[in-house]
Design a protein around this nucleic acid. Sequence first.
RNA 1: GGGCGUGUACCCAAGUGGCCAACGGGGGCAGACUGUAAAUCUGCUGGUAAUACCUUCGGGGGUUCGAAUCCCUCCGCGCCCA
Length: 458
Amino acid sequence: MTIDFLAELRWRGLLKDCTDPVGLAKHLADPAASPRRAYVGFDPSADSLTIGNLVPIMMLVHFARAGHQPVVVMGGGTGLIGDPSGKSAERTLMTDDTIASHVRAQRPIFENVFAGAGLSAPKIVNNADWLTKMSAIELLRDVGKHFSVNQMMAKESVRERLHNREQGISYTEFSYMILQAYDFLHLFETDGVTIQMGGSDQYGNITAGADLIRRTVERRAEARYQAEHGQSLDDAARIEGAAVAGYSERWFGLTTPLVAKADGGKFGKTEEGAVWLTGPRTTAYAMYQFWLNASDEDAIKFLKLFTLLSQSEIESIERAHAAEPFKREAQKILAIQTTTLVHGKAEAEAALRASQALFSGDIAGLPMEMLEQVFAEVPSTDHPCAQLEGGIDLVDVLIETSLAKSKREAREFVGNGSVSINGSKAEPDAKLTEADLLHGKVIALRRGKKAWHLTRWG
RNA sequence: GGGCGUGUACCCAAGUGGCCAACGGGGGCAGACUGUAAAUCUGCUGGUAAUACCUUCGGGGGUUCGAAUCCCUCCGCGCCCA
């Protein structure tokens, strides 16, 4: 079960930057100091995380599979400030309550994914626990003193805003980096966490943390060495020998690449918006469909990034897929694997069944129980049964179900044969009547290939 | 504070008195072909009781038979000067 963490990240394409790959390999391989601890910070700006966040989560999963201890840091404290990285405008501050509720809502995501990977839950901490207790003077004296404003202004996330006439950047967001850097120092000192990981957009913040540790911890170690040996600890000794001698410790940062789609589009977006990792925002069915629709080029890449299948398993899928791409084996495996990881086996299998039923269009013969299950994933509306007496125009129903935005559009859809009733194509002047009811209760409408809607009549 | 520009549909962008519900491109939706893919082709992309009418070109007001288009004013944005 134990894997080589760095080698695993490399073949999967999960590794972008590392502050010191050689040093880190040694660091992780040292049996005396195992397990090592690594953390990733997550921003509670929403009550869920998106599929993009799954990349660093997978990094933590692999870290655990390598026999080490992953730590999840919820940004309950830093979220009160707001990370300027990648943001073109100053953020609106969120209230304590909002942040705290977001933190609570995100927590199960980590537990679920780790459970899905067959691992025990990772340690989860909230940086509000230490950041909110820090006084302003402490922050400025103990932390701020180690930062050069000149350097901070040179960081990408800040520089862009400094040169932007319209937006600028507040002192609050400018200071964000200091807080995140302090997280690393705090975890290093209190929990023995030596590695920070994150998306490549976090590299600046990660190195800021590493710098802070060097300036505080390492200087302390150097001072101790000097006091005991009467001579200074030079760089070579620091790296090679001093760690062993206990006078210096090492810390590392590594980042995951930004996931890009082969067609250049933004990863993790659908027509409905971002793909989220929790059911209330993105159902298991929607997530399953998202993966199933991956392009051929992306499917193999995603298998490496988002599943725990082995290298040889993925290679064999790749061969099969290259031979018979129309079978879409890669996408199917990708979809079931990732959906299982995030939503669990039962929900993933339900999503699979729903997909099969909905895309075969063969739903008229399904028993009610099955129908309810399949359409649990699909939007639905209630309608008075009386309307069916004598028939109601399909066009009107399409608007009520918001499958069409206007009558004009509804007529267009029906006219070019893109609407089906219970799986069979609707005639241009179709009306819905009692005869269309399945099990006396529901009528399933579909527009195009993918947009289903369940109407309930009662 | 002054000068010169600029604001058009989801985005970019034409249009500078009637032929304007407004060229074109992107994006989106649908159809055909397919593999729930890509590429390609076709249609649609203000609304309705539809050969017509109604609401739209930053907001408000005005000129005119008639305004996205001209005038006034306010607001937003850009560049230059102070």
